[in-house]
Simulated scan of single mutants.
Amino acid sequence: MPQNLLALNWKMNKTPAEARAWAEELREKLEPGEAELAVMAPSITLPSLAAHLPPGVALGAQDVSKHESGAYTGEISAAMLVDVGAKYVVVGHSERREYHGETDADVAAKAKQAQANGLIPIVCVGEGLDVREKGEQVAYTLKQLEGSLSGVGPDVVVAYEPVWAIGTGKTATADDAEELAAAIRDALTERYGSDADGIRILYGGSVKADNIASICGQPNVNGALVGGASLKVPDVVGMNDALK
């Protein structure tokens, strides 16, 4: 069973000064736990975080260019992220897919670019409420996964994030999370063989200290991609402690 990963996705929150204060507070209050912690922060805050995060807490970014370098104004390359100490990068988050029109092919290109530079991509997949209500969540998510992993190697994390549960207060049950995680695991095994056993599958969507243990206690769930509850250090400490 892979070690649980608690991936903290700040989204578009915190200035560099606020990020430093958060990191310093975390350094004071965090006690070692069983899960790996990683902070997915706005790129402008990464240097500050790298200097102040507690030892052992990994650094990650929320997006990466599918291009190596060049005339792509406003984009950030995988090499730039590696240079400031990033280990992970989120690709294909539902908000990127919805607001920026990212396709599965875009997500796969970004994941490949990340891997080519030594970053571990956290590839996000998941269905909307309309798909869930039709009972088509497994087929939809696996099709999205197939396209998003095209040409991508096994050094990857997959995050299942039902779109209807992100920031809504609605949370998939532990059984809902396991249903999709098990289906994803089978698809990963078909693609990568025995390497799939070590791939972490995260659940994302209104995760908090009071539900994280039951969700991550499922056989095929290996952590969580956490949004709102990642912004306050006491909430992070609570989730970390719940996974001990």
Rank of each mutant, 00 (worst) to 15 (best):
V125D: 00
C124D: 00
G153L: 08
S148A: 15
S150E: 14
D176K: 15
V138N: 04
L188E: 02
G198W: 00
V131W: 12
T189C: 10
A116N: 12
A181H: 14
E133S: 10
V91N: 00
Q115I: 06
L188Y: 11
D106W: 02
A109G: 02
V125G: 01
E98V: 11
Y140E: 11
A108K: 00
W164L: 03
G151H: 02
Y140M: 05
T168L: 08
S94Q: 05
D197K: 08
D104F: 03
V90L: 14
D186T: 15
E133P: 05
D197S: 14
G169A: 11
D195M: 07
V90H: 04
L142W: 13
H93A: 06
A109Q: 00
Q115C: 11
A116M: 08
A196S: 03
T103R: 13
V91L: 03
E146N: 09
Q113D: 09
D186I: 13
R185K: 15
G118A: 04
Q115R: 11
I166V: 14
A181V: 12
D186A: 15
E98S: 12
V163D: 00
Y99N: 10
G135T: 00
E178Q: 15
G193E: 12
D186G: 11
A165Y: 03
T189D: 05
A172L: 07
T171P: 11
A183M: 09
A139W: 06
Y160F: 14
G118C: 04
I166T: 11
G167A: 04
A108G: 01
L149T: 12
R132K: 15
Y99P: 05
G153M: 07
A182F: 03
A165G: 08
I199Y: 05
V90Q: 07
Y160V: 07
E133K: 14
T103I: 08
H100F: 15
P162G: 09
G151Y: 04
L188C: 08
V152S: 07
P162Q: 08
E179I: 06
G128D: 00
D130Q: 10
Y160N: 03
Y99I: 09
I120D: 02
V158E: 01
H100W: 03
G118M: 02
A159V: 12
Y160W: 12
I120E: 05
L145W: 09
D175I: 07
I184D: 02
G126I: 10
T168C: 04
W164K: 10
D130W: 07
H100I: 03
I122Q: 07
A174D: 15
A139N: 07
G92P: 03
P121D: 05
N117D: 12
G118Y: 10
I184R: 07
G126T: 10
G147V: 10
L129G: 05
V123G: 01
V157E: 04
L149S: 04
I166G: 02
L180N: 12
G101R: 02
Q115K: 09
T189E: 11
K110T: 00
N117E: 14
G128C: 03
